[in-house]
Design a protein around this nucleic acid. Sequence first.
DNA 1: GTAAGTTTGTTAAAAAGTTAACAACGCAAA
DNA 2: TTTGCGTTGTTAACTTTTTAACAAACTTAC
Lengths: 218, 218
Amino acid sequence: MDAIHAFEHLPHKTIERLSQYRRALLICLEEGKSHIFSHEIARIQHITPVQVRRDLMLIGYSGTLRKGYNIEQLIELIGEIIDSEEMIKVAVMGLGDLGHAILNYFNGKRSKLSIVAGFDVNPKKIGTVFNGVPCYPVEQIQEIINRENISIGIITVPAKQAPVTAGRLIKAGIKGILNYTPTPIQVPEDVYLEEYDMITTLEKLAFYVKLANDKNKL
Amino acid sequence: MDAIHAFEHLPHKTIERLSQYRRALLICLEEGKSHIFSHEIARIQHITPVQVRRDLMLIGYSGTLRKGYNIEQLIELIGEIIDSEEMIKVAVMGLGDLGHAILNYFNGKRSKLSIVAGFDVNPKKIGTVFNGVPCYPVEQIQEIINRENISIGIITVPAKQAPVTAGRLIKAGIKGILNYTPTPIQVPEDVYLEEYDMITTLEKLAFYVKLANDKNKL
DNA sequence: GTAAGTTTGTTAAAAAGTTAACAACGCAAA
DNA sequence: TTTGCGTTGTTAACTTTTTAACAAACTTAC
């Protein structure tokens, strides 16, 4: 009980990294490894070994001296912290290229997180099934979200339609929204929002590439 | 000269936000507005007005008291800071759904950043043109990157192929890589890397939705 | 023309996140 | 043995980022 409460206060960045650690660990497990050192995890994630050890300290996991961390146990523990007990269900709004891309990458790999519905305005897509996910008309959003008990919506519609799509999700009682479009949206306080915009990242990258270039010119 | 040097030391987060401010400002300009208050920008980006003012202070832009910031001027200034003088050219590795999605969202809107080539292994795609971007076979990567003077590569291939794709880009002399796959890659020191993974964000969102749920249950 | 209200620009404080430092431990080699 | 090395766990220092506080300046209302 006390331990559960502690996880509430994990730093946001640690939560992100735990998800990443787990992904890396799953790959290592596949490769037949049973233990891993902090510096190995660190190298994969482009961070320092200290940071890895600190994160693991925060979640109360102990490794073995000179042997590293037990991969299987660590995956298990990370799951206990970041996964939900019940399945968390997700809807994708807009089954264009980006929606499809997400379904592809996601592809039933997460055990406690599952995309169960897609919505689109294109009549040709309605009724089709892509990667096991059926496509519904947006008008049915309220009905499907209630029926399937969907708590997260991913917005992958064209940028201009992001706000109205967000509005629909909010009205339907969604708990969290992941917005992949470059158009920022507004949500009420009780909806958790994650804006995840591709263009910002690219422009930032371009800035630092330019900077490096300019330095080399001197 | 001195002013240019100062921009080198802008906080990373400020660079990100400048890109976002500009995007929001462009929309406001389209809507016919000429000035904007810090709290308006803040609201759009889900941050505080202080943060906006602080960022603008750092880039040395002054607004008008009780009138706000001149949108056109501010867009101009942000461009001077984050854009490169010459066009920065970008290649997309993998023209699947995600590659297409990026081309769609990007779509020639950035004036100083341009996607000029796509690469794929699928023979059916080679030679086609999507959104004005021609698709080449990966074997020609070195040739095209040299010829077009491409400095940034975006990786949108299937996750398993991310590392080998990164290797090809690096060998071809790329300066910056944006990796959209969930598989982390390794780059030498002089290549700027941005990992931009969709699954981490979704898992983080799920965690905070779960947390909110658990709290409500009590 | 004076008071009240807004908004900017800036400095200072606080919070969040990262890195450094190092004790503790245990294995391996001499 | 005992010495040296590699690794963990943890505290403390540092850096980055955000937030608070407030003076200055302009506008409007009275």
